[in-house]
Amino acid sequence: MSTVLETTGLSKRYGRTWALQDCTLALPSGRVAALVGPNGAGKTTLLLLCVGLLDPTAGSVQVFGRSPHQQAAETLPRLSFVAQDHPLYKDFTVSDLLTLGRRLNPRWDDALARARMQHLGIPLTRPTGKLSGGQQAQVALVLALAKRPDLLLLDEPLASLDPLARRDFLRTLMDAQLETGQTVLLSSHIIGDLERVCDYLIILSAAHVQLAGDINEIARTHKRLVGPRQDVAAIARVHTIIETSHTARQTTLLVRTSGPIVDTSWEVQEASLEDIVLAYLTQQAAEATKATERMQAPLPAAQEPQGLEQEIEEVEL
């Protein structure tokens, strides 16, 4: 299976801030990949680098074996991108947008576009500014699909949509997926929506890739371990602990297994994708907090009681 998208040590800096650092990925063709991570993690930056709208500060990105920024003329016709909030020309009618697509793209499938608009019940003569949010998102998606891309990238396509619109959007996407077997990469900070449609996962947090791989593989190799409160060193020697949580009587771990779990002191449970993603993000957040705490000086303890007394006084006044 060939890889449609490859990045090697891809990094992007704005001024002094690194938006993306040392990102190495290989997305196989035909996959529907989810790019998840908190806001500000670098998802939009990664997508813009992949479509050639940004150029890297360091490292490289290749789509179909070419640089999308340097060789835009060759890669653009095979790429489609739907930006965040699906921007459209608000004063253009839907029909105008289809004309735009037809005139500006050699591989445009006008019949498909019109059929989909009809199937979705979107009137061709209405200015897109007058359509509902969900309909605008569908129009943007159909425009991207009618270009017959080999690689389709979407930046938070579901963010501004209500649950019904989200389901309809994904349904259109899956229908197209059935027909074309294209490669899709979509970003979101909500995992729940993506579990059913994606078969590849990339977790991005704090400008770094935390995890990337086939979703079934990830589900198979990540387990939740529950046991009486104990030291985790033994388990940590064999498997990678992603997240640890202790209560008075119980310890819960999320681990990435490198083989079967033989330690009988642990109960092995399946972990949902959402749990796995949260574990990776929590770990990243915890490390970030520790780094920040090390940098801050501790507050002198004497201040606290005084503050409390002051608060009470103010309330009484």
């Binding site: 709208l53 003329a73 653009l76 930006a83 459209l88 500006l104």
Partner: peptide, 15 residues
Amino acid sequence: QQRTHLLVWMQSVTR
């Protein structure tokens, strides 16, 4: 301003 550059520059014409 309307971010339509993200739409039109991703059609098959180069910037």
